[in-house]
Amino acid sequence: MIPVPAQKKPDLGDMVMLSIIIHLLLVLLLIRLSSQQWRRAVTPPVYYVDLVNLPVAHPRAGTSAPAGNNRPAPVATPPVKEAMQLPVKGGKVAKVKAPSLKPPPPRQGAESDREFQERLARLQRQTEERHEASALEALRQKVATAGKGTGQGGSPVANESEAGSDYASYIQSRLKDAFASTIAHQSRAPEVLVRISIARNGRLAGYRIERSSGDPLFEAAVARAIAKAEKTFPPPPDGKVFEQAYLFRPQGVAKK
């Protein structure tokens, strides 16, 4: 019998560390990928809605996770499978719940393994630098907010009511459904940014193309999606005219 070399059992603390680092990197990678679009975005009236339905990010992260406290009061609109329809954020959170020591697969398969490793390394360097500076500042904030007893330490600043953001994501889901039945394009990765206004009665007050794709076939598909989705729009909350920018693009197509 050949003796099996005794494997060195990894220390629990190391494991946890590694897991956390990977999650951190993942989040940062995600942020970085998304922020490339944000830079081109027009200033918005509505803050993000994607985290609305997220569960607590990590059981042991306790109050520092943003989700639970952030959940808006239930609105009349049904919670149309939002968690499922937000592939980016939803997917990542799912991974947080099931930690794995393997490096996560590249997003959408858009980059090769090598590129991914390079990106990881780059991100790691950047985060390390940022950490030192932000850690102190963040801790200070934490202490300050904790004093107020809100339990919302570090949660983002909202400009609009939570109900408004939920309405925006509801409209987003209606647009998504309609878009799935109209999408057509002849260029490889078209993107159209459309600002949609919804009148107080829930009818489409108008829309404006803020950034064109130069692909008429795609533009027409977006227009048809909006026309189709309009029939399902409920009136905006608070009796206000609703305005929001939406970026239409084909799913799974690598960004330019």
Binding site: I20, H23, L24, V27, L28, I31, S34, S35, Q37, W38, A41, V42, T43, P44, Y47, Y48, V49, D50, L51, A57, A61, G62, T63, S64, A65, P66, P87, H131, S134, A135, A138, L139, Q141, K142, G153, G154, S155, P156, V157, A168, S169, Q172, L175, K176, F179, A180, T182, I183, L193, A225, Q244, A245, Y246, L247, F248, R249, P250, Q251, G252
Partner: peptide, 22 residues
């Protein structure tokens, strides 16, 4: 702690539009 603080802080930079993909 860093993770908890950093995540929302950076995410709050998300501004602009919502994505509609198909």
């Amino acid at each position: 702690t860093l993770l908890g603080l950093l995540l929302p802080a950076v995410l709050s930079a998300q501004e602009g539009y919502l994505e509609v993909t198909a």
